[in-house]
Write a protein that binds this DNA or RNA. Structure first.
Length: 962
RNA sequence: GGGCGAGUGGCGGAAUUGGUAUACGCGUUUGACUUAAAAUCAAAUGGUCUUAUCGACCUUGCGGGUUCAAGUCCCGCCUCGCCCACCA
């Protein structure tokens, strides 16, 4: 009997696959297309276990679909431009071109050793001139469509890379390539650079997210990244100066509560509005704040700021409020200035408390009494009331009161009379209704809440704005004379728990929390108070109403803001596609004409960044000097190169037409094959996946492709980490090497199977050193089973066994199909293992050769093929096939084999499983009951008791309640 | 601070609409084969009690609830992970 030897069969089949082109897809085929791919690789070292994970996921999908008869395309390419590649070249002392020429062939070998079914005939690299010609062309198209522009901006700057970084390349304050412990934090530097106007597409990109079949966390991350907020801009005049300050807010409803303005230190207006006396403080503050990096600012726990000496006029009520400058306001978002509403915003609240600025509540949270809801036909009457929480002098108890003839307990309440303070009302109510007067402590507690109910006795809808007053009694002495209403109420002392259990509506528990200080003082939504004409309006309505009132005076307008910035596409590095722009003294910025593309990146011996903020190209004088395409005069080429994210944002389309010299791609082919059916990766939730969506959308606008979404399904898979939970890293050297695992004799099939089996794909897994050997054992079992079968002699297995074989196969195929479609690879493999175990059980002593056995064994081999393609093809051949298993070999599901004539019914007594009985399928309750009662164990539990109730789930379960 | 998600054996993890909790694998134990080991095969494997057989009871982070029936639904708490993080 031949032993399973991956070392022999894997290279053998890899060679056969290469020679017979099984994975070469025909893009013009009439078959239904399917394209599965993983985010392509940036060659910068060796294939590591993360690659093995990522690419196997899409490979399994591609193989599954290929077996099912789809024209399946599993493309391959290299994200070969960019920083990681350049940094690697610097490190090993080669040019990036040489480095690529060395790395890519190694990767090719590794990919083949992993058994990935790539179509090598259509391989692409982003650093080849044939490819980057079209990357440059995209820039030109953006430019022609007014979506590319130049601007001077403060940008993240990595001192190690000597280049600008995009926001998403800054991770925890450090460069994405230099995020080690000893690496420097990024700095800010003023740089002139190119941008793509991705913000123009912000809304479209956001709206389309909901319909994507993508991992939810990625969709959410994209939504947050775009960060749409709908609000208003409100303009405040500066008192005594001919200046004004516009703020952005999403909470125009809180305008009456704005007690100061805050301006970011970078804003130009700061110097204009600073008063003479405050000048020194403000200048010092601005200087120190701008010197701080953004990271230091964000790390600072406590907010800081200084008063400018000027005041602004609140346009809604002409109130004069101070203007402060503080670095908790970001200059880059909105207008760089805010109206501070400390009663309703945490940050403003913190700041106001620190600098002793007024806090004015203008929104009262609503508590609607669900036992006496408002009646639509009745009048709405609001009233300011106090709600008193009165504490016993000795015990931890509080007063609740029951009006004579009433039903509901409540704390003591009373309406605030004209000209009376809340505390005065509280004292008056206390003595009138209880006679108590000996007060140790009285305190008005915020915030005010809106308690809403139908007041039966007055026959009106009532909104009671409750000011909570907390009173601690010193003694229980009673002034009988002043206690004029004492007999109207029944007073009772209760503990906190009793209080809470008595009544929980209309905000009464909330009142206790407020009095005891258990509640956040900041309220968000509710009814407006202290807001003149707008009192009582719901905050959600007030936003619009206040803006539209100010609209007439040109003091406010509706405004939508996005967190997302335009995409900075300039890089001051050598290893990228040169930006196809010529700078001419006479004509200015001129686009290189399309017929002159590509602008070839010259090979340089010294390609390190210049350090002056320009790329090495600034030193390539021959290349740099050119003639202006417009006037023919002397001119210089742009020395910035394009961000690699541009290369990777359109490569999926090039896969469909990789060698086109005349066009970026043929739209007809792309429209047939796009969108990508399955895409996966463990990184780039926002940057790459958002840029690719942006570029695809742009392609639809210029008529290149029909579908604006490039990836139909996107699976964001988890990472493989070390068994101690730490990330594998090159510096630690703790990563298992896929190729050496293969060479050890376990083979690629076992490695692939383990990786796909360890955990759900989205979850990621910890590396288990026993995992690959375990998967190997499974493949050995499969191998040995086939060998044993091949040695068996022909005979009829008998009807019972035939049915069992068919049922086992059908159950396996059904489960594997469902799980592969749903990307649950781990349970798919479990089902195959179970299917294999079934066959071992069913063989009893030895196999017999028969059609039924052949079919059952082939089904297992076919199902395992996407995961372990080499052993599958080998066994397929041994089983007598001359064609490859990897095309059109998916087993047919015979649903009828799953139909059972007899079913097992679980018998419960009082919900506890007591036994199981076999009954004919679809038996009615009577039959099942009889069968169950006949069961020894069941009858033991039923004894002679009366069955009160019987619940039956057909073909599954019966439960007797006694 | 905000958002999202998750807590199931010694471990990774299974469990359609609520319907036999612990599939599948790892590990461990025992046995077969072997001079021996590895490999392979066979069996066992949540806990407690028990005459160690029959069996009973308990068990999905903790506490309550709904239900004939809860890992699954509801309420409260605890813990952990991930993402975003002064975005007004």
């Amino acid at each position: 009997m031949k032993r399973y030897s991956p070392k022999e069969i894997e290279p053998k089949w890899q060679e056969i696959w290469d020679e017979t082109n099984v994975y070469t897809s025909d893009l013009g085929s009439d078959k239904t297309k399917y394209i599965a791919m993983s985010m392509f690789n940036y060659p910068s070292g060796n294939l590591h276990i993360g690659h093995a994970m990522n690419f196997t996921i899409s490979d399994v999908k591609a193989r599954y679909k290929r077996q099912q008869g789809y024209e399946s395309y599993h493309p391959v390419g290299w994200d070969s431009f960019g920083l990681p590649a350049e940094n690697r070249a610097i490190k090993v002392g080669m040019s990036p071109q040489e480095s690529m020429a060395q790395l890519i062939p190694d990767y090719r070998k590794a990919y083949k050793a992993m058994g990935w079914s790539n179509d090598w005939s259509k391989e692409i690299s982003t650093h080849s001139p044939e490819y980057y010609k079209w990357t440059q062309w995209i820039f030109s198209e953006m430019f022609r469509n007014n979506l590319a522009y130049q601007d001077v901006r403060m940008q993240w700057w990595c001192t190690k890379c000597q280049t600008v970084l995009a926001n998403e390349q800054v991770i925890d304050g450090k460069c994405w390539r230099h995020d080690g412990k000893d690496d420097p934090i990024v700095e800010k530097k003023e740089v002139k650079q190119w941008f793509f106007k991705i913000t123009e597409y912000a809304d479209e990109l956001l709206e389309a997210i909901d319909d994507l079949d993508w991992t939810e966390s990625v969709k959410l991350a994209q939504k947050n990244w775009i960060g749409k907020s709908v609000g208003a801009e409100i303009t405040f005049k500066v008192d005594d100066l001919d200046e004004q300050i516009t703020v952005f807010t999403t909470r125009a409803d809180t305008l009456f509560g704005a007690t100061f303005l805050v301006v970011a230190p970078e804003c130009d207006i700061v110097s204009k509005i600073t008063s003479e006396s405050q000048k020194k403080f403000v200048e010092d503050y601005v200087k120190s704040a701008t010197k701080k990096t953004e990271i230091e600012r964000q790390a600072a726990k406590e907010k800081t700021g200084v008063f400018t000496g000027s005041y602004a006029i609140n346009p809604i009520n002409d109130e004069k409020i101070p203007i402060w400058v503080a670095d908790y306001v970001l200059s880059g978002y909105g207008t760089g200035a805010i109206m501070a509403v400390p009663a309703h915003d945490d940050r403003d609240n913190e700041f106001a408390k620190k600098y002793d600025l007024p806090i004015k509540q203008v929104v009262a949270e609503r508590f609607v009494d669900n036992t006496s809801l408002h009646r639509s036909d009745k009048e709405l009457v609001s009233r300011n009331v106090v709600t008193c929480i009165i504490k016993h002098p000795e015990k931890e108890e509080y007063i609740i009161a029951l009006p004579k003839g009433g039903v509901n307990w409540s704390p003591l309440m009373g309406g605030i009379d004209e000209g009376e303070s809340a505390s005065e009302t509280a004292k008056r109510e206390l003595i009138e209704e209880t006679g108590y007067f000996d007060i140790a402590n009285i305190k008005e507690c915020g915030p005010i809440i809106a308690s809403e109910f139908f007041a039966k006795h007055k026959d009106v809808n009532r909104i009671a704005y409750c000011q909570v007053v907390y009173i601690e009694l010193k003694s229980l002495q009673v002034d009988e004379e002043k206690a004029i209403d004492k007999d109207e109420q029944e007073i009772k002392w209760v503990s906190e728990n009793e209080y809470r259990s008595h009544r929980d509506s209309g905000g009464m528990n909330e009142v206790l929390d407020i009095a005891l200080g258990n509640r956040n003082e900041i309220t968000n939504e509710g009814r407006l108070i202290n807001s003149a004409d707008f009192n009582g309006v719901l905050s959600s309505d007030a936003r619009e109403k206040i803006v539209s009132k100010l609209l007439n005076q040109n003091a406010a307008k509706e405004k939508v803001n996005y967190k997302m910035r335009d995409w900075s596409v300039s890089r001051q590095r050598y290893w990228g596609a040169p930006i196809p722009i010529v700078n001419c003294d006479k004509c200015g910025v001129v686009l290189v004409p399309d017929e002159q593309l590509p602008v070839i990146l010259p090979e340089l011996t010294d390609f390190k960044p210049s350090g002056d903020g320009r790329s090495a190209l600034a030193r390539a004088t021959d290349w740099l000097k050119t003639t202006c395409p417009d006037c023919g005069g002397e001119a210089e080429r742009e020395t910035d190169t394009l961000d690699t994210y541009i290369c990777s944002s359109w490569y999926m389309f090039r896969y469909f037409d990789p060698f086109n010299k005349d066009k970026i791609f043929d739209s007809k082919i792309v429209n047939k094959w796009a969108p990508i059916d399955f895409y996966n990766g463990g990184d780039h939730a926002t940057a790459h996946l958002l840029y690719a969506r942006f570029i695809a959308r742009f392609f639809t606008k210029i008529g290149l492709v029909d579908n604006p979404e490039p990836f139909k399904q996107m699976l964001f898979n988890g990472k493989v980490v070390a068994s101690d939970g730490q990330n594998f890293s090159k510096t630690l050297g703790n990563g298992p090497d896929p190729l050496s695992i293969i060479d050890q004799g376990y083979g690629a099939d076992a490695l692939r199977t383990y990786l796909m089996f360890a955990a759900p794909l989205e979850l990621g897994s910890r590396w288990d050193p026993q995992g690959v050997p375990g998967a190997h054992r499974f493949l050995v079992r499969l191998w040995n089973l086939v060998q044993e079968y091949l040695d068996a002699s022909e005979s009829d297995p008998g009807d019972k066994l035939k049915a069992d074989l068919a049922r086992s196969s059908a159950a396996m195929i059904k489960k594997v199909d469902e799980d592969l479609e749903g990307n649950r690879y781990n349970t798919a493999i479990a089902a195959i293992m179970a299917g294999l175990n079934d066959l071992y059980k069913l063989k009893n002593d030895k196999f017999v050769k028969s059609d039924e056995w052949q079919r059952a064994i082939e089904a297992v081999v076919s199902c395992v093929a996407p995961f372990a393609p080499h052993i599958a093809d080998e066994l397929w051949q041994q089983l007598g096939h001359s064609n490859s298993i990897h095309k059109d070999s998916w087993p047919k599901l015979d649903i009828s084999a799953l139909v059972q004539t007899e079913v097992k019914i679980v018998v419960q007594v009082n919900g506890k499983v007591r036994s199981t009985v076999m009954v004919p399928a679809d038996s009615d309750e009577l039959v099942v009951t009889e069968a169950a009662k006949a069961d020894e164990k069941v009858s033991l539990f039923l004894k002679n008791e009366q069955i009160k109730k019987t619940i039956m789930v057909p073909n599954k379960l019966i439960n007797f309640v006694i």
